[in-house]
Computed example of a mutant assay.
Amino acid sequence: MKSPFKTASIRFGLVAAAALTLAACATATPYQPAGAGGVRGGYAEQRLENNRFRVTFAGNSVTSREQVEMGLLLRAAELTTENGFDWFSTVNRATDRDTRIVSSPEPFYDRFYSPYWGPSWRYSRGGYWSRWNDPFWGRQGFDTRQIDRFEATSEVIMGRGQKPANDPNAFDAREVIQNLGSRVTRPM
């Protein structure tokens, strides 16, 4: 029969290795083409007409809604200047949210060697954790959390000259690049 201390130390080592691996992967989606470098997410575009594109930016579970929407606007501005235009206007802009609830076992729970630990749960919503649902002495067993992913999509119409003053969805492309270019996460 294995020693409970040896089993606990092996589990601790495995959990520490998994935590380090996950920490290395827990970075926001970089501002780059979708799928580049094996990263899920990023920007993509499709030309619809000479001066009209559909632009999307998808983030991973640690990319905020604000970062996703900045990525969309920055890509629209870059496309505008690359195609010889001065301003762009967004049409039908939307940001979708994909939510999953994930439960994972508590790594140190062992029903054979830990008589004072047992199943319980908690959840994360909006960045805050609930208390452990535990009727007996702080037992732990399952960790439940909410994972959100955002994807922004817009059709973009481009124009030359001064941007339309009466269009609240019109942006000066060079100003957007200047203001947002340094605020997005670039690939490493």
Rank of each mutant, 00 (worst) to 15 (best):
S3K: 12
A8L: 00
I10Q: 09
L22D: 05
A24T: 06
C25M: 15
A26F: 12
T27Q: 09
T27G: 05
T29L: 14
P33I: 08
A34I: 07
V39Q: 14
V39S: 10
G42R: 13
G42F: 13
R47L: 05
E49A: 14
E49M: 12
N50M: 06
N50D: 08
N51H: 12
R52K: 15
V55C: 08
T63D: 11
R65C: 02
E66D: 13
Q67N: 10
L74S: 03
A76C: 03
E78Q: 12
T80K: 00
F85K: 04
W87K: 04
F88D: 00
T90Y: 04
V91D: 08
V91L: 13
V91M: 10
A94L: 03
T95V: 11
T95P: 07
T99L: 12
T99D: 10
V102I: 12
P105E: 07
P105S: 09
E106N: 09
F112S: 08
S114C: 07
W121P: 01
Y123S: 09
G127Y: 02
G127R: 07
W129G: 06
R139D: 06
G141L: 01
F142S: 09
R149N: 04
F150S: 02
E151K: 08
E151W: 01
I157F: 08
D167K: 06
P168I: 00
N169S: 11
N169T: 03
A170I: 06
F171W: 06
D172V: 02
A173L: 06
E175I: 13
N179I: 00
N179K: 05
L180N: 00
R183P: 07
V184F: 08
P187L: 04
